[in-house]
Simulated assay, not measured.
Amino acid sequence: MTPPTFFAVEYAINPWMDTSTPVDVARAVDQWQTLRDTYRRLGHTVDIVEPVPGLPDMVYAANAGLIINGTAIVAQFKHAERQGESAAYAAWMGQHGHRPVATRHVNEGQGDLLVVGSTILAGTGFRTQPQAHTEVAAITGMPVVSLELVDPRFYHLDTALTVLDDTTIAYYPPAFTAAARSRLRGLFPEAIEVASTDAYVLGLNAVSDGKHVVYPAQAAGFAEQLYHAGFHPIGVDLAELLKGGGSVKCCTLEVFS
């Protein structure tokens, strides 16, 4: 995780960002700290990557890459405003025993590359290029399932789909093409389908350890669905960071080994 020390909405590269809306950095830091403390309270290790001035979106650590089995596939960002984050995160990855590897095509890390069991679900349509999916499959040796997004509010896969455990997901069907929905139904016939009310507060931008699901607190309906499915939902308010188009998962780069 990276603290939002330099968080700001200085440009607009997704529909959630409005440069005329003021940002309360102190409040953003407090909300981020609550998320960090929640993970620690659940027994998880949280490593901190130092923020870099001039990179206001660096708080969205999930986009930094995909770290799995000692290899770190470093993000290649679509927008120039975020490209400086790649070097900062690659340096941290290398210093912490992960082998940094670059793709030739645009990939935005765990924003669009979500591990479920032995498979990677890979988003495309707005940021990550489909050619990067092929590269990720070759680097990891894992099957990659491409899923096309069609609603710009859900510009990354992690805004429209949550991995809950090795066999279970939750997702918002209208965010995907008909072909992608068909793939998801075939792979996950028992998936939780989330309503618009929860999707529109980025309720699916959540993190699960297989039992506890840390989710944006405004997504009350999703929390109820999780409870009835046997998970333990834990709501965290990240409303200030939502102004940049991210929430719980966006702030969390998971390391898979």
Rank of each mutant, 00 (worst) to 15 (best):
K249L: 08
L113R: 01
Q76W: 01
G97C: 05
V46N: 08
T45F: 01
M1D: 07
P216I: 06
I234V: 15
M58I: 13
D198I: 02
E85P: 14
V74R: 13
N107T: 14
F126C: 04
Q131P: 00
F188S: 03
P130S: 07
P22E: 06
R183S: 14
V115F: 00
I192A: 00
F126Q: 03
A223L: 09
Y171F: 15
R82M: 11
F188V: 09
Y172A: 10
Y39R: 11
A223F: 04
G210M: 10
D209G: 12
R127M: 12
L241T: 07
L121A: 05
V29S: 02
F154C: 09
A72T: 11
G203P: 09
G244D: 08
V115M: 07
K211D: 12
T159C: 12
P3W: 10
W92F: 15
P143W: 05
D237T: 03
A61K: 12
G117W: 11
A26M: 07
G117F: 06
C251G: 02
P3N: 11
H98V: 01
F256Y: 15
G54P: 10
F7Q: 11
N63S: 15
N107D: 08
A195Q: 13
L147S: 02
C250H: 12
D237Y: 06
T177W: 06
A26S: 13
A179D: 15
L187I: 08
P51V: 12
V236L: 01
G186D: 09
D209S: 12
T162Y: 03
V144Y: 02
L161Y: 03
S118E: 15
A87L: 11
R153C: 06
H212D: 15
I73N: 09
L35T: 08
V9A: 04
A178D: 15
T34G: 00
V150W: 05
R183N: 05
L187W: 08
V214T: 06
P15F: 09
P4L: 10
F77Q: 04
P56H: 08
S208L: 10
A137W: 03
V49F: 10
M1A: 14
T45A: 13
A175D: 04
E148G: 00
D30L: 04
Q110A: 09
A64R: 07
H156A: 02
I13C: 04
V23G: 02
A160G: 10
G221E: 04
E224T: 13
D151S: 10
A223Y: 05
F77H: 14
H133C: 01
P53F: 08
Q83R: 15
P173D: 13
Q129A: 14
E148K: 14
A62M: 10
T168V: 02
T119Q: 14
G244N: 08
T38H: 05
L114W: 04
M142Y: 07
A91L: 14
Y200L: 10
Q83M: 11
V236G: 02
L66V: 09
P143M: 06
G94M: 07
L187A: 13
A223W: 03
L226P: 00
D158M: 06
D158G: 02
Q31F: 01
V9R: 08
P56C: 08
A122C: 12
G43Q: 10
I169Q: 02
H212F: 11
D237N: 14
Q83A: 14
G111L: 04
V201N: 03
N205R: 10
T134V: 08
L202Y: 07
V115R: 11
V201K: 07
T124M: 06
L202I: 11
